[in-house]
């Protein structure tokens, strides 16, 4: 079954959503991610949605759920790269994604996560080696 890859970058996880997700794929992503946070003890999650042309209430709800679940598992979530047209539409729709942190780019999002981790008094690897952990969990 197709899935959205979750990259592990040191203490953080990076998800780049590029395809127009159907509902089952979105649900699967949510499950995969929760499992990864626990397995790697990740401190933060970056979700890059710059490739998404729309965010409807279903995907909006999924983002909200990810943020809430991550927070319980002590990981901060930052949604990055939302397109202007998507942001305007979400506001008009009445979906303001409360409780979700946002950043303009992956780089800026990463800075936010690092700062958070530093505030929490944790050592953060500066040169996190990128590796794709492609295998879906069983």
């Amino acid at each position: 079954m197709e899935h959205i890859p979750i990259l592990r970058m040191g203490e953080f996880l990076l998800i780049t959503v590029q395809v127009d997700m159907h509902d089952r794929l979105a649900m699967k992503l949510q499950d995969d991610l929760t499992e990864r946070i626990v397995r790697f003890g990740s401190r933060g999650v970056l979700i890059d949605i710059s490739g998404l042309e729309i965010v409807d209430s279903f995907i909006g709800r999924m983002l909200g759920n990810i943020a809430s679940v991550s927070r319980i598992l002590d990981a901060e979530t930052v949604v990055v790269g939302m397109q202007p047209a998507v942001a305007i539409t979400l506001v008009e729709l009445g979906l303001e994604l409360p409780g979700i942190r946002t950043a303009l780019s992956v780089e800026r999002g990463m800075q936010i996560l690092r700062r958070e981790a530093e505030l929490a008094g944790l050592e953060v690897l500066k040169d996190a080696n990128m590796e794709e952990d492609g295998n879906p969990p069983e």
Partner: peptide, 8 residues
């Protein structure tokens, strides 16, 4: 609000 959603 829209700007905030984008991270600004």
């Amino acid at each position: 609000t829209a700007a905030r959603l984008m991270g600004a």
